[in-house]
Structures are given as C-alpha cells and as structure tokens.
Amino acid sequence: MLDRMALPATAPLVSRLPARLWIDTQAWAIRRLHFLHRSRVAHHLETGSLGEREALFHLRRNGYIVVARRWKSAKVPGDLDLIAWHGSVLCFIEVKTRSRRDAFAAELAVDSHKQTILRRLARVYLHRLPPPVRPSSARFDVVSVYLASDSGRQPSTHPDFELNQGAFGWE
C-alpha cells in the first residue's frame, strides 16, 4: 500500500517494482536479524531462565523457602541463582540446565572457578545479613535440570531434576 502512495497510479508497473522489491528486502532483513538474534542470544538464555524457574518450583515443592533469585553484588562478579532456606540451613543454589541429557552430568559444569565465585558471593550475602538473622549453617546445592523428554527429541512437560545437597564446601 505504501508503494502506491509513493508513486502515482499511472506510473508503469516496472517503475513501481523497485520500490516494492526494496520494501520486501527490508522486511526480509528485519526478519532475518530477529531470527539470528533469537538463535544466537536468546536460546541459551531462555533455556537457563526456564531451568531456573522450573528449579524454583521444584525446590518449593520439596520444602525449600526461596528468599532470593539471581542475587548480585556490586563488589563480586557473578550471581547466585537461588538462595533458599531448607529447614534451619541457608542454601546457595546453582542451577544448571540442559536441553537434553549428555554423557556428562550438568552439575559437572560447576568447576572450581565457579565454586570460588559462588563462595565469594555467599560470603558477601552472609555479611550483609544482620547478626541475629545469620544462619548457624549454610551449604551449597546444585540442581541439574534436564528439559528433554526420555526420548531426548522434544521438550518434556515435566523436566527431570537432580538435587545435589551440599555439592561442595566452603574451603
């Protein structure tokens, strides 16, 4: 419709074709950029976000009281996926999500470097709590979330979870 407004109706079809072709090219480029943006950036972020949300509800079903999600500090890089109380124990929970099961368990992605970052963040979090509220014990849990069905071909409506309580210590 826009190309009709730009050119008089009496203009030959050939002269209107380049304007339409240009508009179609722009539309194709915008669609392609959107597709590339989704496939490169959003897919893994979307998978991780979905896994964290599923883990949050799984933990709540298992008696955890979640008090923080994606907690960050200005002093230490990184974030704590979930912070929750499990009875009288404060848990710092790292969530690892995979779209399907692999030869390696998802929790193996929490290597020594990641553990160091999580320990630093946990210390900052505990230091910010007022002394009467500070827990007598705290631990690090890792939740592995597998989104694929048993066949591994399509996402399942019920993901599989593996909860590793006390996955690593404070040392």
Score class of each variant (00 low, 15 high):
47 T>Y: 02
51 G>T: 03
58 H>T: 05
62 N>S: 13
98 R>N: 05
62 N>L: 13
120 R>S: 09
87 G>V: 05
33 L>D: 08
102 D>H: 07
123 R>T: 11
37 H>G: 11
90 L>P: 01
54 E>C: 11
127 H>F: 11
49 S>P: 00
62 N>D: 12
68 A>E: 15
60 R>P: 04
39 S>Y: 09
65 I>K: 13
55 A>M: 03
126 L>D: 05
106 A>R: 03
112 S>D: 14
50 L>P: 00
61 R>G: 08
77 P>N: 13
34 H>E: 15
35 F>E: 09
121 L>V: 05
72 K>I: 04
108 L>D: 00
41 V>I: 15
60 R>W: 14
111 D>H: 04
41 V>P: 01
30 I>M: 12
88 S>K: 10
76 V>C: 02
63 G>D: 10
60 R>S: 15
35 F>H: 08
120 R>L: 06
30 I>H: 12
95 V>F: 03
41 V>A: 12
31 R>E: 15
89 V>W: 02
121 L>I: 06
51 G>A: 05
42 A>C: 07
60 R>G: 09
51 G>M: 01
78 G>M: 01
116 T>D: 14
101 R>P: 02
38 R>Q: 13
69 R>E: 14
123 R>Y: 09
71 W>P: 05
86 H>W: 05
104 F>E: 13
53 R>Y: 14
81 D>N: 13
46 E>T: 07
31 R>C: 10
98 R>K: 15
122 A>M: 04
28 W>G: 08
110 V>R: 09
51 G>N: 03
129 L>W: 12
128 R>P: 02
70 R>M: 07
97 T>H: 06
101 R>L: 08
86 H>R: 13
65 I>D: 09
46 E>R: 08
38 R>I: 06
43 H>I: 13
75 K>R: 13
43 H>S: 08
82 L>V: 12
45 L>K: 05
46 E>N: 07
96 K>T: 12
42 A>W: 11
94 E>I: 00
67 V>H: 07
31 R>H: 13
85 W>I: 02
62 N>G: 07
96 K>W: 09
65 I>S: 14
36 L>Q: 15
55 A>Y: 00
97 T>P: 01
61 R>Q: 15
89 V>P: 01
41 V>R: 12
129 L>F: 11
31 R>W: 12
118 L>E: 00
59 L>G: 00
98 R>V: 01
70 R>P: 00
112 S>E: 15
55 A>G: 04
72 K>R: 10
112 S>G: 06
41 V>K: 12
76 V>S: 02
50 L>Q: 04
124 V>M: 07
54 E>V: 05
37 H>F: 14
73 S>I: 08
114 K>V: 05
121 L>S: 01
99 S>Q: 12
77 P>H: 12
81 D>Q: 12
73 S>A: 15
54 E>Q: 13
80 L>P: 00
77 P>E: 14
94 E>A: 02
88 S>Y: 06
115 Q>N: 02
37 H>C: 09
126 L>V: 08
100 R>G: 08
98 R>P: 00
29 A>K: 11
31 R>Y: 10
53 R>S: 14
44 H>K: 11
127 H>L: 13
46 E>Y: 06
87 G>L: 07
45 L>Y: 08
123 R>P: 03
66 V>H: 10
82 L>H: 06
